[in-house]
């Protein structure tokens, strides 16, 4: 079995020199802010990677251009929709997000440190979990579906106000055990094809898988507007799809496995700029 999958993998990942390398290009947003899409790997992965690179560098010319302008970026129309929701009161307490948090711009600095350990709750929380906690317990509003439209729009808004800030996810202290669990998942081969995240995203980034340019699988650009489904996609939705595509049994959005995986994968991109909402294939 292992021999077969090895052969399959070898043929599927045949390197095509022409398009193999990530581009040498700089992401300047709105002709204003320069985003860091390439930087020295954080210590904890420096043994396996020299540099960490944003998925932006692996996409085609037109796709990269689409992200460089807030008008060309179709994800931003959903950010605008979330801005309206931000300022609209909802729930039994008659509050809006703005009632406590002020303008959405005040939330700069939040996205780069999530997922993180929440002292009061005694658990690692993703941004989605924290949003739902606020909605349920402070607004008296209904929780949003984890990867539903309302939630992904809101995480896009929160990412957008932190663009340019370096991802800075804590991997030690109370978050450490979750981080270790995520790391184990990342390197465990599963499913029919016996692939781990690392099989593609660490051992073969830059190569072509069929006609797609494999990235390092960084998530600093999430939620991302995918040209493929013309909508914003959440991290856990992408994890689920990726695992399903490699013919392994997948986990659910919001599951402890995906929370751990998000913490770990996010930390592999520490130092890259928050880019969400990005534009990808």
């Amino acid at each position: 079995m292992k021999k077969l999958t090895g052969a399959f993998l070898a043929s599927a990942l045949a390197a095509t020199p022409l398009l193999a390398e990530p581009v040498d290009d700089t992401l300047i947003l709105n002709e204003d802010i320069t985003l860091v899409t390439r930087t020295a790997a954080p210590d904890h992965v420096s043994d396996v990677l020299d540099e960490v690179m944003s998925g932006w560098l692996f996409r085609g010319t037109e796709t990269r251009a689409m992200q460089a302008d807030d008008f060309d970026n179709p994800g931003m129309i959903f950010v605008e929709q979330a801005e309206e929701v931000w300022n609209t009161a909802e729930g039994s307490e008659g509050k809006s997000c703005a009632s406590c948090h002020g303008a959405s711009e005040e939330m700069a600095g939040v996205r780069p440190v999530y997922p993180k350990f929440n002292e009061d709750a005694g658990e690692v929380r993703t941004l989605e979990m924290q949003i739902n906690d606020c909605r349920e317990n402070r607004m008296g509003a209904e929780k949003w579906k984890y990867t539903g439209g309302s939630m992904v729009n809101m995480t896009a808004l929160l990412a957008s106000v932190s663009r340019g800030m370096p991802v800075n996810i804590a991997i030690d202290g109370p978050a450490q055990s979750t981080w270790e669990a995520g790391k184990e998942l990342y390197y465990t081969r599963t499913g029919q094809l016996e692939l781990a995240c690392a099989s593609c995203h660490e051992a073969n980034y830059g190569n072509m898988i069929r006609a797609d340019h494999l990235s390092q699988g960084q998530i600093n650009g999430f939620p991302t507007y995918r040209l493929k489904n013309t909508k914003l996609n959440a991290v856990h939705a992408r994890f689920k799809g990726c695992i399903r595509d490699t013919r392994a049994e997948t986990f659910s959005p919001g599951s402890p496995e995906f929370i751990a995986l998000e913490l770990y994968v996010g930390s592999r991109g520490n130092g890259l700029s928050v880019e969400g909402p990005s534009v990808r294939n």
Partner: peptide
Amino acid sequence: VTIGGCGG
């Protein structure tokens, strides 16, 4: 027009 990576 090509087919993407893992069919996904």
